[in-house]
């Protein structure tokens, strides 16, 4: 069974909420990757979303943009990232989801990318500039058993959410803001209702992401869905050496038992 599917099923069995942190591959050097993954695994994260740096990340806010620029300055390439993950795969158990833009995968070559992902034990991919209309060109990723995670947003119509969730794999990434990634102080009042609507329609778990940056955000969001994804805040914490705050965020997701 796919490692990510298994981890999400375990959450359900144990009546736990999922917590998926995002880190930028190569930010601080690829040698740091193993210790970051082990730290997140030990802290109780369900899976890790591993960002691939791209020169033109249109879905990302300043924090992830900067992390990507730092990583690119270190000379990080997608080839290096997959090679590193292959190297450490026996030491790390936590499922890894790659988050990268369409062009990074196309430039790699779809066939080679799929093969190398399988070798490296990658569980899934999130491609933020790939709506379902264009998914077909990446279908070989799915055929190989790597989960292609779909996103829904606050602007997706009921009809569209139905269509997106119908073919969903792994989990549904429910974007919680009209906007790009990055920390936010408050969310619109429509959030709870939106998450519940997506949850009602989705055959797979629904995880909320974009803008979630405090333990309170985490606690609020998980009342209406199956877990959260935190990106910019995790990057800030690693960048400034405040790993204890990462643990607090993860703990916040464990506080509430499914009703």
């Amino acid at each position: 069974m796919n490692k990510l599917t298994k981890a999400l099923e375990d959450c359900q069995t144990n009546q736990e909420k999922a917590f998926i942190p995002y880190i930028m591959a190569g930010d601080g050097g690829l040698d740091r990757l193993k210790s970051q993954l082990l730290f997140l695994e030990k802290s109780g994260a369900t899976a890790v979303e591993l960002g691939i740096p791209f020169s033109d990340p249109v879905a990302d806010g300043p924090v992830i943009q900067q992390a990507g620029i730092r990583s690119l300055k270190n000379g990080t390439t997608l080839k290096d990232v997959l090679k590193k993950v292959m190297e450490i795969k026996n030491d790390v158990n936590i499922p890894i989801i790659l988050m990268g833009y369409s062009n990074s995968i196309m430039a790699y070559g779809l066939k080679e990318f799929t093969e190398d992902c399988l070798q490296a034990g990658i569980s899934g991919c999130i491609i933020p500039d790939l709506p379902i209309e264009e998914e077909a060109i990446f279908s070989s990723i799915k055929t190989a058993g790597i989960l292609l995670i779909r996103l829904v947003t606050l602007t997706s119509s009921q009809e569209r959410i139905t269509e997106i969730t119908a073919g969903a794999e792994g989990f549904i990434y429910a974007v919680t803001v009209k906007g790009i990634t990055g920390t936010r102080d408050v969310f619109g009042g429509e959030l709870g209702g939106y998450l519940k609507k997506v949850k009602d329609l989705s055959p797979v778990p629904v995880l909320a992401g974009f803008g979630i940056s405090t333990p309170d955000h985490v606690r609020d969001a998980i009342q209406s869905c199956d877990g959260v994804i935190v990106g910019s805040k995790i990057i800030e914490c690693f960048e400034t050496g405040k790993e204890n705050q990462i643990s607090e965020l993860i703990q916040a997701s464990k506080g509430l038992v499914r009703k």
Binding site: P128, D129, P131, E133, E134, L151, T155, S156, R160
Partner: peptide, 12 residues
């Protein structure tokens, strides 16, 4: 061509 955009823009 095509529409390689974040889902948020699909409605627009």
């Amino acid at each position: 061509g095509g529409r390689f955009v974040p889902e948020t823009l699909m409605a627009a």
